[in-house]
Amino acid sequence: MLLAQPATPALAQQAVADDTGYQLGHGWQVPDTDLTLGGYAASSLDKVQGQPWTLDVNSLSLFLWWQPLERLKLFSETELENALTVQQRRTSSDGAYLALERLYADWTQSDALNLRVGKFLTPVGRWNLIHAAPLVWTTSRPLITSEPFPTNATGAMVYGTLTSVGAGLDYSLYGSIGKELRPNHRLDTFNKAYGAHLSYPVQDSLQLGISFANFEQINERGERKNLVGVDATWSRGGYEVSTELGWRFSSEGDNSAEKGGFIQGVAPLGGKLYAVGRYEYFRESGSQPGVNLWLVGLDYRWNRALILKSEYSKAVDNRIDAKEGFLLSVAVLF
């Protein structure tokens, strides 16, 4: 009788966790429930140009997902940003903000057809979709991956993997009518938006993507913007080269247009040590010329979940106060 009972994935995970112990970066399955907890934390020590040394607890992010039905999943990510800042012997939590990064329900009809409703990461490029500190190689974020568009959207999305197309084409189509869930006061959120993102693994080691978005933002009503982007990631044997390029056109003309891109390389130096190099260019609306940013870094990837990063960046034609200087950070996925 007992052997006839089908196992559930939740219980299988539980069995493994109980057998091997909790592992960083694998989340925690709450016993006897369909609830999983996870998250990440990041802290940095930086000396950026024009400012004193600063120690920051940048983010403390909590994931929570619940799968009450086989085809229904609820997911949330809540992030405590800038929880603590230490600067010139002064400790402050004035910049602390509890952000709702994601809150959505997913209904899976099939591998090719999923419906998401709620607040989600805007599917533009690759970096925005994997921006968590333990997942990326640098503490700083390329400007093109966040400046030209709101990084979150509240609305609906249809997405899936078309396994009948070669090695599997990932697609997402989304729309928003504004009304952002817990809008972050630091961001100019969508008023209305629609867009699409396609991603395709050309080989095991190469992933290509294209993005399109048409949108209007809350603080610039009446100005319609079109964003197109391409992204590519190649990785093999510990080496990685990634790039994202984006162009944003505006109904207000060329002065409101933005464009930019980056190319980043990662090379293993032996053991758990990696060298990182990046060049990026970004031209903000109304700014001539664009800023050129160069970055070199050294990372120590302790394991799948824990990474120590150090980097130095230098800018040319920096008229938009892009951060340049030394950054050290530690990030852990839990």
Partner: peptide
Amino acid sequence: NELYFHGVLPPTV
């Protein structure tokens, strides 16, 4: 790691 960030876990071991 990327899939975990989106709430998808690897196969059970």
